[in-house]
Design a protein around this nucleic acid. Structure first.
Lengths: 228, 228
DNA sequence: TTATGGAATGTGGTATGCCAGATTCCATAA
DNA sequence: TTATGGAATCTGGCATACCACATTCCATAA
């Protein structure tokens, strides 16, 4: 008997969602900490540039504000948020907490193949292609590793809670990664974490993951004076 | 010279904020898991009942949706979200991760007096006033303890990220707390955590805090079939 | 030249109306 | 009685107009 194959029809994302996506991407891709002046967004201006009315833009702005990317001051404009050093440190600490829990969960539920797949995120870097020569590239790969790790936990909640944290920290991370051979040391740490995961050593994996990220927090605490 | 004392004039919260507060309170106070039928919210209905237009209500709804309390289905209504067992377990695990990090931070930065203040949250319960006789009351005190603990970390990020987690788990927690003498055992655990904090034992405090909450996650995993 | 005050402008907050898709209801025909 | 189909209704998405407060600009007077 022949099969009648149909696939579910997806509705186009709403203007609200499209505006949210576009604005969030624009904000996370811009150089927020390069200048000191307030970065202002104007609803009417964005309305014209995006070709939609203010309503869906305002709703997108509500989402971005709740995620900590913008702050609206009534009748005084909307500003892109610059995190203080303290806030960045706290976000990295929260990240460390969530990722260490992810590591613990991985040792209990992930398959060997899944854990092994984490190695694939490193093979692009070797003697001929060292991280310090391709910092931007490595920074992206680095974040990809952490996201892959957390996703392996199988916890959608951990994955979702971490996504924005990593986005907020991204700008800062790209600055610190180039110093003190942090990139190379980072790779060593990552390999140690993977080894612990493979050995199903929950306590060790958790501790290594936590300490690896807390090291970054300490580094930002000590050298992150470009913030504030 | 006499001082001219003035205090800053605060603007009234916007309708958007007021609607958000009112709706969130209404949702978190209702018995979400008591029934099985979808719980629907209607923008126009709420607009009349709150005495404001749909616009600020829609913006409040966007906030609540992002926090996972409601889900709007285009042209099919807005529903209060019922978390699945899996989601609740994941939220409790995330909570465990964040609270254990809070415990670690407390051992490093909190004062002895601050740590001692955690005892104050228990003195209402003793031989004459056992938890099992006042479950609802104890459940609130229990949550208050966890929130106070996390707040002592000094991390606004941890505090904020945990607030909604606790709200989501609250309904479930009030159900589980009454079983298997969980309330009494909970108090014992809490006292152990405080002791570790007082001894500035970061690793122990972290481990106890994590395990205490992960125990709840395991309990819900095993007995939380009222969900789904 | 400088301080003042009010008009003009800018900007987010709110109310309202219309649109289109989804659902419900009911008359109608087999 | 039951299946059909379309009209009526419901409901969130979006556009638009107006409001009030904040800021800016400029004419005016000391």
């Amino acid at each position: 008997m022949p099969k009648f194959v149909v696939e579910r029809i997806e509705a186009d994302p709403s203007f609200k969602t499209k505006a949210y996506t576009a604005l969030k991407q624009a904000i996370t891709e811009m150089d927020i900490y390069g200048s000191k002046e307030p970065i202002r967004l104007d609803e009417r201006n964005l309305s014209e540039r995006l070709g939609i009315s203010r309503t869906p833009i305002r709703e997108a702005m509500v989402m971005l504000e709740q995620e900590g990317f913008v702050k609206t001051l009534p009748r005084r404009g909307i500003r892109v948020v610059r995190k203080t050093k303290r806030e960045v440190v706290e976000m990295i600490q929260a990240w460390a907490a969530l990722e260490s829990m992810a590591a613990r969960l991985i040792t209990k539920h992930a398959t060997d193949a899944e854990i092994a797949s984490l190695f694939g995120l490193f093979q692009d870097f070797g003697q001929d292609h060292t991280p310090q020569d391709h910092l931007s590239e490595y920074s992206s790969a680095n974040i990809a590793f952490h996201q892959a790790l957390i996703a392996l936990s199988g916890s959608q909640v951990l994955t979702d809670m971490t996504r924005n944290l990593l986005l907020h920290v991204r700008g800062i991370r790209q600055i610190t990664i180039g110093r003190d051979n942090r990139a190379e040391r980072s790779i060593v740490d990552h390999l140690s974490i993977i080894a612990a995961l493979r050995n199903r050593d929950a306590d060790l994996a958790e501790r290594l993951a936590r300490q690896h990220t807390l090291d970054l927090a300490d580094y930002v605490e000590a050298h992150g004076d470009l913030l504030d």
